[in-house]
Amino acid sequence: MKMDSSSELASLYTVKAVAILDNDGERLLAKYYDDTFSTAKEQKAFEKNLFNKTHRANAEIIMLEGMTIVYRSNVDLLFYVVGSASENELILVSVLNCLYDSVSQILRKNVEKKALFDHLDSIILALDEIIDEGIILEADPIAVAQRVSLRGDDVPISEQTMSQVLQSAKDQLKWSLLK
């Protein structure tokens, strides 16, 4: 076996895969950035194995099939970020946290399956803003949410509830302050 080859280490292709599963282990969203699992069947088998090993123990990190996987769960969702076994685990966690916090922002802190389906387009866009073919593109959840223009903003005011309007006004204010 090749030990941590340094040429591979200086690569920017940090993330092998990202997955969001539900509490039955079903894939809601998953992206594989290299050919570790080249077929859909292999991917699903890996997700199943991963889910079985992680859904009960909330332990944040696991080594599996020669990879390091960091994960986080909330209500009925599990978020996973997969990297090579020699990858800096803290970098992977920073990606995981960015993904989770971005999703949380988009779903207005309501991180659960139903809300995720309601905003699936924004979530897909957010994931695309965080990782570009395995390279960490952005790790700051505020920047990510900013780049994913929220659909709520396009909806005419009349269609939104009062609290939604307030929330979006608050969010916008917060971002303009943080800019």
């Binding site: 969203l29 859909a40 991917q43 699936l120 387009d121 897909i124």
Partner: peptide
């Protein structure tokens, strides 16, 4: 249209060819 694109993307994401 956005919704349809999301659906297509979901299908691709589920590994359907």
């Amino acid at each position: 249209c956005c919704h349809i694109l999301t659906k297509i993307m979901y299908i691709i994401n589920q590994g359907e060819s």
